[in-house]
């Protein structure tokens, strides 16, 4: 595991009969985290920084590293129900929630539809809206090797994040990466517009919007669009020097902003 200290504790729960991994670290008031496009192939410095103050619980969404069962989920409603099942199985019941990218769109959905579940919310460059003047970049139509520079301001940060750990089977590792891409595509293909906008008037939890200034997938203009549509109190923080996976690249700054919002 990268980051300071020991890795997280691991347990498995069942969602629709498929195993999904729960990673957990730290003590104190719990904060739940749903990861973005590549999922969580390894623990991150952002999560470590949170875990210094809070008990961090990171469940894997179906199809993302540590989770299976994405191929049963056919519609956004199926995904939202699976996310609710997963968070409840992970022990969430009126707690703070952070969601990034793909995890961000689902975090916004559950906060809008199950308001009792979510206390405060942090959304890090969530998908789900579509602005035709700055459409989300088509992450599934890229030339080989283009992914790292698309997802991170510093491509090396992404390469290190997804590199197979020592002892991993490289074939299986690459299949798991493809599976994560497929799971994201299954929810978001082709335009990444899940019609979330129609439900944001129900999102009343206080919501912090974190955005990488160098996000090449969802332009920071989307932060303003979320800001306008969410019913609850909101604040937008743009993180300089970070791309779409902003919590990966600007871990300390993102964690500080999140902790401030959630305390």
């Amino acid at each position: 595991m990268s980051g300071a200290g020991d890795g997280p504790a691991e347990r498995m729960v069942s969602v629709n009969g498929s195993p999904c991994r729960i990673w957990e670290k730290g003590r104190g008031e719990p904060v739940f985290y749903l990861a973005g496009l590549a999922g969580l192939p390894r623990w991150t410095g952002f999560l470590d920084a949170l875990a210094e103050h809070r008990r961090v619980v990171a469940p894997s969404l179906p199809g993302f590293p540590g989770g299976l069962g994405h191929d049963r989920l056919d519609s956004p409603l199926d995904w939202i129900a699976a996310t609710l099942d997963l968070l409840e199985a992970a022990g969430m019941d009126g707690a703070d929630l952070i969601g990034a990218s793909v995890g961000g769109t689902l975090a916004a959905e559950v906060a809008a539809l199950a308001p009792g579940l979510v206390r405060r919310l942090v959304l890090i460059a969530p998908f789900g809206l579509y602005d035709e003047s700055v459409p989300p970049t088509d992450v599934w139509a890229q030339r080989p090797g283009a992914e790292a520079a698309l997802l991170c301001h510093d491509p090396a940060a992404f390469e290190a994040f997804v590199a197979p750990p020592e002892g991993a089977d490289p074939g299986e590792w690459s299949i798991a990466r493809t599976r994560a891409a497929e799971a994201a595509a299954r929810l978001l293909w082709p335009l990444a517009d899940t019609r979330l906008e129609r439900r944001l008037h129900r999102l009343r939890a206080p919501t912090l919007l974190l955005w990488g200034a160098a996000d090449r997938i969802l332009a920071p203009a989307y932060a303003a669009r979320f800001d306008r549509a969410i019913a609850g109190r909101t604040e937008v923080v743009v993180l300089p020097g970070a791309g779409h996976l902003a919590d990966l690249e600007a871990g300390p700054a993102a964690a500080a902003a999140a902790l401030r919002w959630l305390s």
């Binding site: 994405h70 599934w140 139509a141 799971a183 595509a185 299954r186 293909w189 082709p190």
Partner: peptide, 11 residues
Amino acid sequence: TCYAYGQNPSQ
């Protein structure tokens, strides 16, 4: 299928 006709490759 997936690009010209926008079908979800996973489905």
